[in-house]
Simulated assay, not measured.
Amino acid sequence: RHGKRHERRRAPPKYQPHARQRALVEPPAPPIELTPLVACSADTAQDVLWHIAEYAPRLRKWLVANPSATPAMLEYLAQVGGPGVPEALRILLKSLEMNGSGSDQPFIASTAL
């Protein structure tokens, strides 16, 4: 009977690392640097554009040049103003008159702003 005690021992189980669990909450994206390019880019999210409209008066004129600016945003900009906003709006209106008001995205030369 003593012989059975010394039977072959089992090999230890192979190490299998567990997959690292993903965090339940992703870290926030780094803050967006508000620049004229961000303000006039059609790819900028509407919530960012509205943030610029409300809190970055120096960049408001660039929102006027953004093809994604909504009529509500343009109206807001006309009401609150800011450096260069009246001139930018005049250029936009002139551009609309020249190109016909049927255009959804009027062309505005950025050098004119």
Rank of each mutant, 00 (worst) to 15 (best):
residue 101 S to M: 08
residue 85 V to C: 01
residue 89 L to E: 13
residue 36 P to V: 07
residue 111 T to D: 12
residue 87 E to T: 04
residue 60 R to F: 01
residue 16 Q to M: 06
residue 43 D to V: 11
residue 6 H to S: 13
residue 36 P to Q: 06
residue 69 A to D: 05
residue 63 L to W: 02
residue 54 E to K: 11
residue 87 E to F: 03
residue 76 Y to V: 02
residue 53 A to Y: 10
residue 4 K to M: 10
residue 65 A to K: 07
residue 74 L to V: 05
residue 68 S to W: 03
residue 99 N to R: 04
residue 54 E to C: 07
residue 92 L to H: 12
residue 110 S to K: 04
residue 73 M to F: 08
residue 69 A to Y: 05
residue 103 S to P: 03
residue 25 V to N: 01
residue 86 P to V: 02
residue 22 R to K: 14
residue 107 F to R: 13
residue 64 V to Q: 08
residue 2 H to Y: 07
residue 95 S to I: 05
residue 48 V to S: 09
residue 87 E to W: 03
residue 91 I to M: 03
residue 96 L to D: 09
residue 72 A to W: 08
residue 51 H to M: 06
residue 92 L to K: 04
residue 8 R to G: 10
residue 56 A to I: 09
residue 70 T to L: 09
residue 38 V to L: 09
residue 110 S to N: 08
residue 27 P to D: 08
residue 33 E to G: 04
residue 24 L to M: 13
residue 2 H to C: 05
residue 109 A to H: 05
residue 50 W to H: 06
residue 42 A to N: 01
residue 62 W to K: 02
residue 111 T to Q: 11
residue 106 P to V: 00
residue 50 W to M: 03
residue 98 M to H: 12
residue 10 R to D: 05
residue 19 A to Y: 10
residue 47 D to E: 12
residue 111 T to A: 15
residue 86 P to C: 06
residue 108 I to E: 01
residue 98 M to E: 15
residue 32 I to V: 03
residue 95 S to R: 08
residue 54 E to R: 14
residue 59 L to W: 00
residue 1 R to G: 14
residue 8 R to K: 15
residue 108 I to H: 01
residue 14 K to P: 14
residue 69 A to V: 04
residue 22 R to H: 14
residue 27 P to W: 05
residue 103 S to T: 08
residue 83 P to W: 04
residue 96 L to P: 09
residue 51 H to R: 12
residue 54 E to M: 03
residue 56 A to T: 13
residue 50 W to Y: 13
residue 71 P to E: 13
residue 16 Q to V: 13
residue 105 Q to Y: 13
residue 89 L to W: 08
residue 78 A to V: 03
residue 95 S to Y: 03
residue 72 A to N: 15
residue 113 L to R: 02
residue 1 R to A: 05
residue 95 S to F: 02
residue 60 R to G: 00
residue 94 K to S: 12
residue 23 A to L: 14
residue 53 A to S: 08
residue 94 K to A: 11
residue 13 P to E: 03
residue 48 V to W: 06
residue 51 H to N: 13
residue 14 K to R: 14
residue 79 Q to D: 15
residue 102 G to Y: 06
residue 10 R to V: 02
residue 14 K to V: 14
residue 5 R to H: 09
residue 104 D to L: 10
residue 51 H to C: 13
residue 47 D to T: 08
residue 85 V to K: 00
residue 53 A to N: 08
residue 91 I to H: 12
residue 67 P to V: 01
residue 37 L to T: 14
residue 10 R to H: 03
residue 4 K to D: 10
residue 67 P to W: 00
residue 95 S to Q: 09
residue 23 A to I: 05
residue 43 D to R: 11
residue 22 R to P: 14
residue 42 A to E: 05
residue 80 V to N: 11
residue 80 V to K: 13
residue 58 R to T: 11
residue 67 P to N: 00
residue 2 H to P: 12
residue 24 L to D: 14
residue 100 G to V: 06
residue 77 L to A: 00
residue 84 G to D: 00
residue 94 K to R: 11
residue 38 V to A: 10
residue 103 S to N: 09
residue 99 N to A: 04
residue 56 A to P: 04
residue 110 S to M: 09
residue 11 A to Q: 15
residue 36 P to W: 01
